[in-house]
Amino acid sequence: MELLYQLLGRLLFLLVRIYELLWLLHLRLHALVCRSYDYWRSKAARERCERAILEQCNAELTKRPQHLVIVVSPEDRTVDVPLLERIFSYACIVNIYHISVYDTRERGSGYVDLEEVCERMGEERSLVWRPHQIKEQRTKPNSSSKNSNMLPKGEANGCKHSAQFHELQVNQISAADGHALIAEVCRELYDNRGTPLVRSLLDKREELTNHISTQLAKRLGLTVPEPELGIIFARQTCTYGLLPWHVRFTEFHTHVSGSYFGVKTFANVLYKYSRCEQRWGK
């Protein structure tokens, strides 16, 4: 009898595996077709189309995240610089100002170093990503320094804009920013345990919680709210140790590695986020 159950189980898993493989193949083919179409169209035409979709989305959203976090799983091989830049440009259009990227892959296995595409601002930890429209504007000799980070409403790339371009604050998150950073804050507090500040923090837990939040934000260079929306590029939903202090109310959306991530996918994630209701315990 046991053997029969084992056979049945193996058969079930085999069938599911075949189904998954066929589904993955379908997703890859779909991605190939979409990428070919993107390649065939001119960049300007693609951007015009993307902008139209996102502007409509923007108008229909009842709420949008201020801070988006992207998680890339260790086995993902599809998230690369062009895809991230594309997501950054989508975020700019829908007025998302902050993106954190948590790439769990190792260097040499697809890990994206954001310093390649973003600029570091002095000693600050966070990076700045600028849409190419701003970069082009900056290179023009007559561009006003006053408007260097924002383009006026108007025409760029052959299309009318109803929104201004803006810079994006980008943070590269690593595994060390999770549990280890909380431990670091605890160690610092322990070293100063005799001081009046730490003694007063121990009188009320809420004060200690606020202090930890402030210290973590300082170390992470986060001047923004906690991420409200997270996109996980993986075959399963898992946080991979992403910022345990900060993502407690983040709405997670899992995008299956290997499938095409385009403007419609991004818009759908935003629509889904816009529909969900946060009750904050009430």
């Binding site: 909380i182 804050v185 605890c186 507090l189 730490v198 837990r205 200690l208 930890i212």
Partner: peptide
Amino acid sequence: DEITQAVETVL
């Protein structure tokens, strides 16, 4: 609250 409690325990 649990994490804060852990920090508090150490301190």
